[in-house]
């Protein structure tokens, strides 16, 4: 017998549960999530674990790690506590990572969405601008911006956002170009939905998954860019950032390697965690790509 096709299937588990199930399948992504959680925890507890200013003198200069329990990871050449620097540095690194990524994604989404949705001359103009940005090496542009704006942490973050928006813009444009001709967009247009709603309510939610995945990459790159700036001595000297610590540790690299190595490891692990996180998000958000 034919059954009438109007009988509903049993309800599916909620999106959150399905998402977590898919994410969990990737072991490396779980490790990434763990490291990320540790970094976030460090940033949150910086004030409790080691109260006080990470820039103040805490012990004898260049104490090796595990020698003095007051400074468990040692001190740099000015006697500043490296552990404390790590905790406070996590704050700066995460702050720079998150804010710069938001800036980059926001610019990228707007430019990419307009170019991909409208096409034609809008697309031509916006993409030529994007290409102009892409042809200038990221870091050179960043140095220029910092030279103009000054090296306050706010400006550095903004500048990192400004140099990173081109890739997401291209990505959003590609997604929009394939989605704008889909029937559901025509269906909404046929209901009389305006262009703005079509872009932001109909198409954008469907274009988001790959962008979210890519955001983790931008975050990792932002942290690296900030560190590189600090390494060159162009970071904000009023904050203990990991890049600043490496930059200063460089001077004593041969006698006290740990001054540069410990924050270096922190950067490597954090960037790695973002990368693994991104891979897990990709598995969870775009399940079809992998099968």
């Amino acid at each position: 017998m034919t059954v009438l096709d109007t009988e509903l299937r049993p309800p599916e588990p909620s999106r959150g549960i399905v998402f977590w199930r898919r994410y969990r399948r990737n072991r490396a992504a779980l490790l990434g999530l763990f490291i990320f959680a540790v970094v976030v925890l460090m940033a949150l507890t910086a004030g409790f674990v080691d109260p006080g200013d990470p820039l103040r003198r805490a012990g004898d200069p260049l104490t090796a790690p595990f020698v003095d329990m007051a400074t468990p990871l040692g001190t740099d050449q000015l006697g500043r506590d490296i552990l404390s620097g790590l905790f406070y540095g996590a704050r700066i690194s995460l702050l720079v990572g998150v804010v710069a990524t938001l800036v980059a994604i926001a610019i990228g989404v707007i430019i990419g969405a307009l170019a991909g949705y409208f096409g034609g001359w809008v697309d031509d103009v916006l993409m030529r601008v994007t290409e102009a940005f892409q042809t200038i090496p990221n870091f050179v542009l960043l140095l220029t911006l910092v030279a103009i704006l000054g090296s306050k942490i706010e400006w550095i973050t903004l500048a990192i956002g400004i140099v990173s928006w081109t890739a997401p813009a291209r990505m959003v444009r590609a997604e929009f170009m394939s989605l704008r001709n889909r029937e559901f967009v025509d269906a909404a247009r046929n209901l009389g939905v305006s262009n703005t709603s079509l872009i932001f309510r109909e198409i954008l939610p469907n274009a988001l998954p790959p962008i979210i995945v890519y955001a983790s990459v931008i975050m990792a790159l932002s942290i690296l860019l900030e560190s590189a700036l600090a390494f060159l001595g162009l970071g904000d000297p009023n904050y203990a950032s990991w890049g600043n610590m490496i930059g200063q540790g460089r001077a004593v690299l041969r006698t006290a390697w740990y001054c540069a190595a410990i924050p270096g490891i922190a950067i490597v692990l954090t960037v790695l965690s973002f990368s693994l996180l991104g891979e897990g998000l990709n598995d969870a958000l775009n399940p079809r790509q992998k099968q």
């Binding site: 029937e183 559901f184 025509d186 046929n190 209901l191 939905v193 305006s194 469907n206």
Partner: peptide, 22 residues
């Protein structure tokens, strides 16, 4: 046109593609 659209509606070919999945 947006106002006129309510007079003429459409049923699409592909029921998978014509409903916004989100």
């Amino acid at each position: 046109l947006r106002g006129m659209r309510k007079h003429i509606q459409m049923v699409f070919q592909d029921p998978m593609a014509s409903l916004n999945p989100r």
